[in-house]
Each structure stands twice: as structure tokens, then as C-alpha cells.
Amino acid sequence: MLACKQATQLASAALDRKLSVAEQIQLRLHLAMCSGCRNFSRQINLLRQISQRRAEHNDDA
């Protein structure tokens, strides 16, 4: 079972590369049981949208 620290690293890596099947399973199992890491994962995905929006709509900011 992954600790949260490793799960956050995998969640971040998943935004940058295709995880191996083993990594995907480990991460999915962890996220299914851990709401903190689920929130973390959602939030770093949101950071991507936020940073793109900031660059592209920089005159509304």
C-alpha cells in the first residue's frame, strides 16, 4: 500500500507521462481509499487549467 507521499508523486507524474500498469493500479487503489490524495489529485489537475487560463486571458486578470 502506497503512502500519501508516494501517491502524490505518482499523481503528479501522471500529468506528465503515462504511468506503468503497476503504478496505475497502486495509485487507483490509494485514491479509492484516501480522500486527501483524491483532493490533491483534483487540485493539481485544476492548476493546469488555472495556469493556462491565466496566460491566455491575461487581460481579464
Binding site: A3, R54, A61
Partner: peptide
């Protein structure tokens, strides 16, 4: 053991879409 401490466990972000419409939010982001 590598688990979130209780005070640092990420909580759900409320109304992220509303934040994107707020000028104040973008100042914080900057």
C-alpha cells in the same frame, strides 16, 4: 509513515469556477 498530517490533509476546494471569475483570486494566484 508518509501519510498526510491531520492539519495538512487536502480538503476539497470550494467553488473553483467562481474563483476564476474573481479579480482578487488572480492577485493571489499571481
Amino acid at each position: 509513515r508518509g501519510h498526510w498530517t491531520s492539519e495538512d490533509t487536502p480538503q476539497a476546494w470550494q467553488q473553483p469556477n467562481a474563483a476564476l471569475e474573481s479579480k482578487q483570486f488572480w492577485k493571489v494566484y499571481e
